[in-house]
Simulated assay, not measured.
Amino acid sequence: MSFLFKPLIFTACLLLAAGAQAATDRIALVIGVADYQYLPPLENTRNDAVAMADTLEGIGFDVSLALDPGTSEMEQLLDDFAFRSEVADLALVYFAGHGIEVQGENFLIPADAKVASNRDVQRQSLSLKQLLGAVDRARKMRIVILDSCRDNPLGDSIALEQSSEQTTQTTETTRGGGGMAPADPDRGTLVAFAAKDGQVALDGSGSNS
């Protein structure tokens, strides 16, 4: 199941999940990327990740928080989380940062990715499939939350100048130079997006998005 999350709906889902599981059987991996080395930085993704981690811990999740990880670190985090999810009833992954769709597949961009083309994205980023694989072994429920844009103005190649130019034309930074494709997860798995298909997710003008 995939859906567009709004604060009240999402909070209700988390509370429902919290009530359905024993505290020791709920785990979460929360990732926030703001300090990009080669892409326009984001202001509030770290703040959002910290707030999400605090919220999840408050309702009994065992949370691992990662801020500004690079490609290899993100891969290792997902591998470790996949191992832990085997003995969890509920596994949740949250990502806030730049995201893009390439050839119908969703990719989440790490802090150190140097992407100038779709091929670079595929080689240096993590796919939604990898995030789904990290939660796939949880025994009862699996949740993946993508707090990234869902537009795709870049075509077959990424022009970094265009991404920067687009940023200066809006009052708020958007979370990605490209978008998120629709997800089709297995039964018992929920994928939530921060924006409608084809739309941007604003980074926010305050301390959070």
Score class of each variant (00 low, 15 high):
residue 4 L to A: 06
residue 25 D to R: 15
residue 74 M to P: 05
residue 160 L to G: 00
residue 159 A to V: 10
residue 96 A to P: 05
residue 102 V to D: 02
residue 17 A to H: 11
residue 170 T to A: 14
residue 25 D to N: 14
residue 206 G to A: 12
residue 99 G to A: 04
residue 41 P to E: 14
residue 179 G to H: 12
residue 159 A to T: 01
residue 122 Q to F: 08
residue 85 S to I: 03
residue 15 L to S: 10
residue 3 F to P: 08
residue 111 A to E: 08
residue 143 I to Q: 09
residue 126 L to P: 03
residue 62 D to S: 15
residue 189 T to K: 08
residue 148 S to V: 14
residue 199 Q to G: 07
residue 96 A to D: 10
residue 136 D to H: 12
residue 18 A to E: 14
residue 89 D to Q: 05
residue 119 R to Y: 05
residue 93 V to K: 04
residue 104 G to L: 09
residue 84 R to T: 02
residue 83 F to Q: 09
residue 86 E to A: 09
residue 166 Q to W: 12
residue 154 L to I: 15
residue 80 D to H: 07
residue 59 I to C: 01
residue 143 I to F: 11
residue 43 E to L: 11
residue 178 G to A: 10
residue 167 T to Y: 07
residue 139 R to F: 01
residue 193 F to M: 12
residue 128 L to R: 05
residue 20 A to L: 15
residue 87 V to L: 00
residue 192 A to E: 11
residue 39 L to A: 13
residue 2 S to I: 10
residue 172 E to D: 13
residue 135 V to W: 10
residue 28 A to R: 07
residue 34 A to Y: 07
residue 83 F to D: 09
residue 91 A to P: 00
residue 57 E to D: 08
residue 157 S to P: 10
residue 105 E to K: 01
residue 74 M to I: 01
residue 79 D to A: 13
residue 134 A to M: 10
residue 50 V to S: 06
residue 65 L to Q: 01
residue 167 T to V: 15
residue 12 A to W: 04
residue 32 G to K: 02
residue 150 R to S: 06
residue 64 S to Q: 14
residue 162 Q to V: 15
residue 201 A to N: 13
residue 182 P to G: 07
residue 69 P to A: 09
